[in-house]
Amino acid sequence: MDKNISFKLKVWRQAGPKEKGNFETYEMQDIPGDTSFLEMLDILNEQLVDKGEEPIVFDHDCREGICGMCSLYVNGHPHGPATGATTCQLYMRRFNDGDTITVEPWRSAAFPVIKDLMVDRNAFDKIQQAGGYISFNCGGAQDANAIPISKVDADEAMDAAACIGCGACVAACKNGSAMLFVSAKVSQFAVLPQGKIEAVKRVKAMVRKMDELGFGNCTNTGACAAECPKNISLNNIARLNREFICAKFKD
């Protein structure tokens, strides 16, 4: 059994998109180490509701690291200090008794704060709608092995497809760039024969949409890949650049 810890929680509170936000400090007492970070926030919210105060708003859904809904910038890292894990997979045993834990929302012009720790990540959906798909006619699915695909390509595509679209890359990037997300969404199709058909159109449309939505220019710091809960590789950004440059030269 993990031992219980007590700590200070410094949380960003913001009443609405246009309101001015500020930090509020809460004292947390005797939280068991095997409590997940989101469960800890649930405990705090119950205490706040009991006191008649407004609970803290934060995004969450599956709580098992696959949906990409949870966010939170914990102690200077998106999804907290753990690597290769989302906030919902972060446990309080990572923190020490007497710590001050700072919790902030993703901060990026393209991800405006809706309330408290919840941000609007619709921009990612818009990029996906611009070209993050493959078109095919409905009907009976053909045999999975009808088109030969090398193991290397299949693995590369699968690793890129592991992106859950949480936005940690944008949050971690000092430039507010969405390149890691877009590159993963381009790469998951670009290396497969099914995706090659629309590859040129896809990469141009997705990059155009990304720029249009106000994401920054990538300067290859690598902070995105270092903080990505799904360990998406910088390799994908090089592929996105390659696909885009080749597409433009084809024009």
Binding site: K10, W12, G21, F23, Y73, N75, G76, T102, E104, R107, S108, A109, A110, F111, K174, N175, G176, S177, G214, F215, G216, N217, T219
Partner: peptide, 13 residues
């Protein structure tokens, strides 16, 4: 452009 994309509020930590 990147400064603008980053938004107005800086991270505290």
């Amino acid at each position: 452009q990147n400064k603008k994309a980053r938004g107005n509020d800086a991270y505290d930590v």
